[in-house]
Design a protein around this nucleic acid. Structure first.
Lengths: 233, 233
DNA sequence: TAGTATAGCTGGTATAGACCACTGACGCAA
DNA sequence: TTGCGTCAGTGGTCTATACCAGCTATACTA
């Protein structure tokens, strides 16, 4: 029981929403009431709620109460952005299905972006990612084969970043992203359970190690009405 | 001086940094010390600092102190800025055509976003923006009528931000943006010289004044294959 | 019946005090 | 000189209390 009380309450409140005990739009008990329920001061309870409001899970209305927010899955560009974290912040259960996983010859753009030598192979994996079992995006990730040679498929698919940092001692640095719009191809529309030519948000991300070497190129297609980015400046 | 104490202190602390009295990397006085200086409780002072930490201006280090942050966060977010700047960065000549310009009753979402009282009117203007005479986006901007009452149409369409800051003495603060994907309506497809249902990148931006009042709500639809956002993090 | 005041609720702000874990500098000992 | 332990100071958390302003349903009035 190492974490602060307000974090523990934060997690318990989030579970209550995720379990469906509080539905979107519901008014949740008042801060004073919850403080009594959890046996803490109102200030502490407020702190727990505050973090959930910042995550977009709850919404306060002065004089009226606190409500379960209705919102799309939002990606905060300022924060760390693993899909898993993203879904958790949105109060959805993340899952994914690997469509393909191959060591292969890189395409021209892959070779260029990842600065590969002419004889290098890459690992290319295609995944469909879900939030609460609803398809959210289709993702193609490419990594130089040399970087993941000694790791298992499980390690790579679960958390490439962690494995690289913990096992290989490499440090992840910055990332370049471009966002644009496109329409769904036949294949992708089937994967995502939408119609052909439905709007998609396309994110292309090239991630670099601390020393400036590119190590991962990811192209993601998000379903337009199930996902949006959020930026603040 | 209606705003809460912690907001006032927030502003004074920010000015101290902006004036260069505290330089990047400097350790600022401790919370207890500042609380005495401003004559408030430590919790209140913490609230002021907290908001500045969230903005990326300050940085806390447990056990060590609070420091003026290296402004990376804000710089990387400045990737998305004004259309004019964007086009200039892309080496294109920006221009625009105003489609409509009306004082009218706000829609529900406009009224909500801009926190309007029930009887307030808004200025809504619709514009097509071009880069090298090629249509890039269609934009709908909404501003509370009270803010622009004393300004000319030219002032408002050219540079609302400058007019508000220079003439009205208001200071522009932060902005929230969401990015998603959609398809072109009949009307917009004509404006942008594309086909109906072609993919569009939708950007919605709510801008706030220094004191936290929302003052402008802009919805923009970018042609998918003529435009993309670039972000670095 | 239709409109209006109001009371009781809500979240927002603010206080003063307390204890904790952590950092970093200082001084002592090997 | 080098290493290590101590300790004052820092931000992090938490309590208990108080008053404010905004919302809403209820009861009352015209």
């Amino acid at each position: 029981m190492a974490s602060p009380i307000y974090i523990q309450i934060h997690n318990r409140l989030r579970k209550t929403v995720e379990d469906g005990q509080w539905q979107i739009g519901d008014k949740i008990p008042s801060e004073r009431e919850l403080a009594v329920q959890f046996g803490v001061s109102r200030m502490t309870l407020r702190q727990a709620v505050q973090t959930l409001v910042e995550e977009g899970l709850l919404e306060r209305r002065v004089g009226a109460g606190t409500y379960v927010a209705n919102r799309k899955v939002q990606e905060r560009m300022s924060g760390v952005t693993s899909f898993t974290e993203l879904m958790e912040q949105a109060g959805k259960v993340p899952s994914s299905r690997t469509v393909s996983y191959h060591i292969t010859t890189p395409s021209l753009s892959e070779s260029e972006k990842l600065q590969l030598t002419s004889d290098e192979q890459v690992l290319r994996m295609e995944r469909i990612r879900f939030g609460n079992d609803e398809p959210i995006c289709f993702e193609v990730a490419t990594v130089p084969e040399r970087l993941i040679r000694k790791f298992s498929k499980e390690d790579v698919t679960n958390s490439l970043y962690r494995v690289l940092e913990d096992e290989a001692g490499l440090k992840v640095g910055h990332a370049q992203q471009t966002v644009s719009a496109m329409t769904a191809s036949e294949r992708v529309s089937e994967y995502l359970n939408i119609k052909r030519n439905d709007p998609l948000l396309r994110l292309r991300q090239l991630s670099f190690l601390d020393d400036g070497t590119p190590f991962e190129y990811v192209r993601t297609q998000y379903v337009g009405n199930r996902f949006e980015f959020y930026l603040e400046r």
